[in-house]
Design a protein around this nucleic acid. Structure first.
Lengths: 215, 215
DNA sequence: ATTTGCTTACTGTCGAGAAAGTAAGCTTCC
DNA sequence: GGAAGCTTACTTTCTCGACAGTAAGCAAAT
């Protein structure tokens, strides 16, 4: 056990191969979905057989979960500091992310497809996305909290809805952008919508003209 | 050709069976996705075999497309007038739809799953969703146009982004609501976000504090 | 009014082709 | 020489779609 404080498999070439497989899997699962994309598809992209992929990841499900974790990890790594910014800075970070995403349709597609797939029966990634949205909503709500304090606004009851809505609009725009890349401007539209929602929290405007609540 | 101005298959029992199959297919494709859900699954729910389903719909792909058309058709049928309201009324209609959707998770799930699935390679429903979003964005933009005129506001350049954003936020909230039914309030959050975006078009507020555009 | 002829609505069964996972063996690095 | 990184070969399990056959309905002719 001299050097085994790391994982047992420590050869650098091996780690490189694993990463190669993960990148291929992002693309395949993005292009075909995780049910429809096959291990053979992934394997082919890195020049091995599907059994070779299984050698590294054990099962298709384990590969999928590692793919999701891998993307989040590389996302965070892009930030200078190793964590997502707190407070009002978060809104800027989200807008920047939307602009940045225009340059990586593969990853956007993977997340769009897999997150929707995750609501199906017994999907292996369901827990991952549940945790993800819970965490993100909490972070956005915290940013609203700080922003309200900073602006001297009493924190309104709309923060919960606004937090969900900001994540929602980003996801929804990604879908439309994937369907009509030339028509929908991902970054621009995200920026507009996030601004609109932030402003609505800070300075509530008039409600829709003639609408009254049901029940 | 005496009475054959209708379709050849006019038996009422047949139409009822077809509708039964369509409803079952909405549920199955919603619960499992269209790739993962099988003809046998659908058939079982209506007490026939998968070959029986093929008898009625020809192929799995045709069934899928009829399922999508069927939902849109029943959606419109719910409106007293047989078309989606024009003008500013449209925004109210969208909010009401969001509240109504809280009562039918099956259909919401089917649309969420299938729309995301449609961006995958050569998906049979891709064209359907492309047309759908194009049409919906145009309708929302037209509603903005009328609303701006009505309010005496010069129609701003943000209408395109706002139209996409309204559809986006509705879609995205549906996903979160499916993952966390008790936590995310579909109707309420949709209403808040739509209001926020409509207000932002009519009365542009301040932009986000310190953000400057890239490139 | 019943027979004849055709269509509709299935069932049961089959075949082709995927796809995931397993087992066993070969090679290459350390 | 032993483990790591594969491959080849195989098994199992699905799923769609094809096909042939059956039962039952409708419709016109007789």
């Amino acid at each position: 056990m001299a050097d085994s404080d790391q994982t047992l498999r420590v050869r650098p070439a091996t780690l490189a191969k694993r990463e190669q497989i993960l990148k291929a899997a992002v693309e395949i699962f993005g292009n075909k979905g995780s049910t429809n994309g096959t291990l053979a598809d992934v394997a082919e992209q890195v020049g091995i057989t599907h059994a070779g992929v299984l050698h590294h990841f054990g099962s298709k499900q384990k590969l999928l979960l590692e793919v999701l974790a891998y993307r989040d990890q590389t996302d965070v790594a892009e930030l200078a500091e190793k964590h997502i910014p707190d407070g009002p800075e978060l809104f800027l970070h989200l807008v920047r992310t939307a602009f940045a995403n225009e340059k990586r349709p593969g990853i956007v597609q993977a997340y769009t497809v897999l997150s929707a797939e995750s609501v199906t029966d017994d999907h292996p990634a369901r827990g991952f996305f549940e945790d993800r949205y819970t965490t993100l909503r909490r972070e956005v709500a915290a940013a609203f909290h700080e922003l309200c304090e900073q602006e001297g606004v009493r924190e309104p009851a709309t923060v919960a809805a606004a937090s969900a809505a900001i994540l929602a609009v980003m996801d929804g725009l990604q879908l439309q952008w994937l369907l009509h890349p030339g028509v929908v401007e991902l970054g621009e539209a995200s920026e507009f919508a996030i601004q609109a929602i932030v402003n609505a929290v800070l300075h509530p405007g008039p409600t829709l003209p003639t609408y009254t609540h049901p029940a």
